[in-house]
Design a binder for these strands. Structure first.
Lengths: 331, 331
DNA sequence: TACATGGGTGGAACCCGTTTCATCTGTCAA
DNA sequence: TTGACAGATGAAACGGGTTCCACCCATGTA
């Protein structure tokens, strides 16, 4: 940066000398709390200002034994659903004076492990992960560092780490029930890859009804479009497509429009997530609402309670419900 | 022997004692590099393993004087365009062994200042910000901490901090030229709020052509839908809508579809950003491609060069170009 | 008047790795 | 045989705050 030859940053001793007090007094001024006589305080503050002193955070962290850093391991930031979660998580952590350091894993447990190791090495006080599928060494790593871990986007009371999330199987069933209640029988399930992704796996797994066509594609707008093409080729008499995510559903909607297949007249489409945009696409998308934002808030609360007061948070299952919009209709 | 009360974390001295060596030797084993006799190394490693020793990151950071932490101040994570940028930024920073700590500002300079102060207090080595509009005290804050700052999403060679981004005015003109080349004359500009948002302001500002209708809405899918309604009421003879962002354009597309206004037959729509989904919405969206991912990579490079080698990065203007898809056509 | 109180401060230990410098040993060239 | 030298290792200083404990002095109380 602006490299003056040797302009060593001032430290407490420098300030103490300049203000003609002891370092203990400087520290007291810095941290408030303890009483310091006004004239003394003024002298110290003047010295701080004059020497452009800023306390060294590492030294402070060393004493307190707290980094005030929380690490989050996310499959990808580049996806609206995670972005919303992270946004809320960050905002809520901030209210507890905790900062959020992110690392993306690409959904790969091996990468998750590596990034977790780095984050731990960096000194994070807690880790937020996604789902319940971990690489082999993960638990040992956590044991070594002995750090709180909260798993999100998933609800599983039996999991070793507290989970804050949804009952993905129930979420999928909600969507399916919605379609069957509308008398649909020839239904396809369009999902992202299930390898490594236990959230998707749970959703798809819950849809074991015989007769459902399962189709797995890349998890993206483009992947969904491709999936729709393959689906229609395979089963031209389909009347409904159940997508395990709104991104996929929106992609499907776009492709159906391109192909001139009217939604919901000739085809019903339902998603899961309830992204903000889903209420505004054409036709507006029926979906299962998942409270991503609230999940972020609850996760932050859980982490904060754990690191601040040692309270291991309970598992938390967030409510999901169907939002019936224009993309589904009765046969 | 029932229940040790406090199981203090082992430190280098504990390890040294257990391995019957000096702390210097433990440190050598920890950091590789210097030669340590194999038998000694084995003893130390055994002790480390047995005591479950993990080095204290704060102490390490204190010695090195480096936190290896970079802070990013983002208007909001909850927006695909920033998410992509952050995703790339994080990935590239990781390659330089730097971690990314995020803080969202809501686009408000005052909040940006607060969050910057916190991040600096946390010990970040550099800051990444968005645009060039800062709160009053920001520069003084930076001067005090003397930390590198890189401004993104904007290109301005005259700005105090290096900028890595686009020439937003040129980007807007590119979109307008595309429409005028297609013989459109009755064109509306649909943008997000320009208060605080210099990127949007530059884009809108570059479109000073008389006759253009300007409309500012909330920056979201929903906002765009509302904007379209107001626009059509105000100027029913419009033939094209230029949106300052793909999110808005996609929202506009959805609303136009709802209103039964055919795109591009009765209305052309162009956006800016080129989100991945824009190539797949219906109709596929013409837009100005902005390399958000590359911006993230370049920003990371710039930050890394600065903190690692003291090289102040040059301003960088990334190329933008029109992608002509199905949402625009000649009159 | 004598002593307990408590606010205000300073000295120094402390947290925990890293690093410098000195020491010691074994080996190789002279 | 001995000095030169490299390899291995330890003692101690160091970096920058925080905090414990002792001490001084000015009231308040008996």
């Amino acid at each position: 940066m602006t490299g003056e030859p040797v302009k060593k940053r001032a430290n407490v001793r420098d300030v103490a000398r300049a203000a003609q007090v002891s370092v203990a007094t400087v520290s007291r001024v810095l941290n408030g709390g303890v009483r310091v006589a006004q004239p003394t305080r003024d002298r110290v503050e003047a010295a701080i200002h004059q020497l452009r002193f800023v306390p060294n955070s590492a030294a402070r962290a060393m004493n307190s034994g707290r980094s005030r850093l929380v690490g989050a391991l996310i499959p990808t930031l580049d996806q609206t659903i995670f972005a919303r979660f992270i946004d809320a998580l960050e905002a809520e952590l901030d209210r507890h004076s905790l900062s959020l350091t992110v690392a993306s894993t690409g959904g790969d447990p091996a990468r998750e492990y590596d990034r977790a190791a780095k984050l731990l090495d960096l000194g994070v006080e807690a880790l937020v992960v996604s789902g319940i599928t971990r690489s082999a060494g993960f638990e040992a790593l956590i044991d070594r560092y002995d750090v709180p871990v909260v798993a999100t986007s998933y609800h599983d009371p039996g999991y070793r780490f507290p989970t804050v999330g949804y009952d993905n199987a129930a979420v999928a069933r909600l969507a399916l029930d919605h379609l069957t209640a509308l008398c649909h029988r020839r239904i396809a399930v369009l999902s992202g890859p299930t390898t490594f992704n236990d959230r998707t796996r749970s959703r798809v797994g819950a849809l074991g009804t015989p007769g459902l066509i399962q189709m797995s594609t890349e998890f993206s707008f483009a992947g969904a479009a491709d999936g729709v093409d393959r689906l229609l080729e395979q089963a031209p008499d389909l009347t409904a497509i159940l997508c395990t995510s709104d991104i996929l559903a929106q992609g499907a909607l776009a492709r159906l429009a391109t192909r001139g297949i009217a939604v919901p007249d000739r085809m019903s489409v339902i998603g899961m997530d309830d992204l903000p945009s889903s209420a505004h696409v054409f036709p507006t998308l029926s979906t299962v609402h998942l409270p991503a934002k609230r999940m972020g808030q609850h996760t932050a609360e859980a982490v904060a309670a754990w690191v601040e007061r040692g309270q291991v948070p309970p598992h938390l299952c967030l409510d999901a419900y169907v939002v019936h919009r224009a993309s589904t209709r009765a046969l």
